[in-house]
Design a protein around this nucleic acid. Sequence first.
RNA 1: GGGCCGGUAGCUCAGGGGUAGAGCACGUGACUUUUAAUCAUGUGGUCGCGGGUUCGAUUCCCGCCCGGCUCACCA
Length: 543
Amino acid sequence: MTVSPALRAAALESKAWPFEEARKILKRVEKSGKKNVLFETGYGPSGLPHIGTFGEVARTTMVRRAFEMMSDLPTRLLCFSDDMDGMRKIPDSVPDKSFLEPHLQRPLTVVPNPFGGNYESFGHHNNAMLRRFLDTFGFDYEFASATEYYKAGRFDEVLVRALEKYDDIMAVMLPTLGEERQATYSPFLPISPISGRVLYVPLKDVNPKQGTITFADEDGTDVTLDVRGGRTKLQWKPDFGMRWAALDVDFEMFGKDHQTNAPLYDRICEILGGKAPEHYVYELFLDDKGQKISKSKGNGLTIDEWLTYADTESLALYMYNKPREAKKLYFDVIPRAVDEYAQFLAAYPKQADAKDRLMNPVWHIHGGKPPAPESGNVTFALLLNLATVANTEDKAVMWAFLQRYMPELSPATHPRLDKLVGFAIRYFQDFVKPAKTYRRADEGEARALSDLADALGALPEGSLPEDIQKVVYDIGRREPFTTTQKDGSVGVAQTWFNLLYQVLLGEERGPRFGSFVALYGIGNTRELIAKALRGELAAKAES
RNA sequence: GGGCCGGUAGCUCAGGGGUAGAGCACGUGACUUUUAAUCAUGUGGUCGCGGGUUCGAUUCCCGCCCGGCUCACCA
């Protein structure tokens, strides 16, 4: 990729956070003289990928693209799965928990897959889920399996060094542990040759020359094991530092929960001869009440939920914005994210200045190549309103409403808008519709509605909204709905329309009724009235 | 207790050394009957508190108050 000097200059100055981070990396590689740059993200494969996984990879990619604006060095993103970790507990998502019971504490890559399918293990299954997940978003990354790396010996050299520096590592770790844990702590976790479990046992001997450790196996007998070739792994804190040293990682971001430990990881990385990577600490997400989102509580939003009601770009925008703030992540933030994304996208072509463009989130969301915006300024907020008012789950009806006001729009010319129409309908189905409260009509009201149905029946299907509206007024011009107008003639009170909305649509407000009937269909409307008169609408809401 | 983040309109938030901003909500008006996915227009703020720097601070610095999260057991 070639970057124009002007663009590069702007990148070196930009205050957008990905550039701030990228500059730290630039400084680092300028100092070390390294000829390539490695970005890493971590993944714990005991669960499925979630919205935080997306955020971490998306944000890391943003830093990577920013870096590429200021340097020609090649970059890579490694998504590292810690799949050799022992299965400490059985995830709730597993159908038959007893099936996994015998495999507790074994590395995830030897635990059989409870979901069946063509996977070698539970870990392999979850890794595949991660890859599929990342691929659907089109991320550019390399996948790495801890098990494979350990087994292939890619960590061997550093593992032996860890034996040599055993005392130094212990000196870093022990002060951070409670008294009880100090007594048994070991940075090395052997995989038991007997049971295949990852053991948390004290070491009886450490032999750097042989590359071995000695410990009591599960049957109580002392075993001496070569640390290399995947026979042992490291405890998570030393594991971070070891990995960074072995792979020469330049950048890794992580959530705030790691923040206090980061200096520890760094120390160990340096003890093992590496240079600690640049870090970026991001905030965790909160739910609508300001509580931390956790999978076990099930609060907040899942990534599937977001993508049910809005597009990936809006989610990427949400991730771009202020990673250091604890942001609330719940349904109400979606429409705003969608509309802001559209605004930023529309602004981009008008921004002549590179400086302004680099500050625009869409630059980061699309790695410097945002697509052309669509014309028209229909907001998502408006569409949500429209779905409510039009009371429809039919895209065609939504489009009919839209085109009444904006005939230049169509699904063919505005595919993004068409997608949003679909999202708005989903939103309507899941949030608006269940909240509808239909009222029963009293006797007089029922008679009026019945008359309305008859009068509508006299009109041909496809009548003009104006003609239908006239009928609606004529039928409504009766007690108790009459009102006297300014010119003294008999008019129809608002209560008549309120009645229609409350009884037929389950809403306090609604569209111009004639327009609604024209689009919804006369036959459909009569059917709707009949249902209301039979009490079915109100009954459904009550049940 | 350590660390991180926040406190700006009724609500959700943006902004940032020089007349204080948006959306929603609310008020008013228009659209050949009062209906609103419409348009126009308006109300509304001691920018948490105290000090400092400055010609000028909501913005920068220091201190405090309040709120949230996170670490201290486990990965």
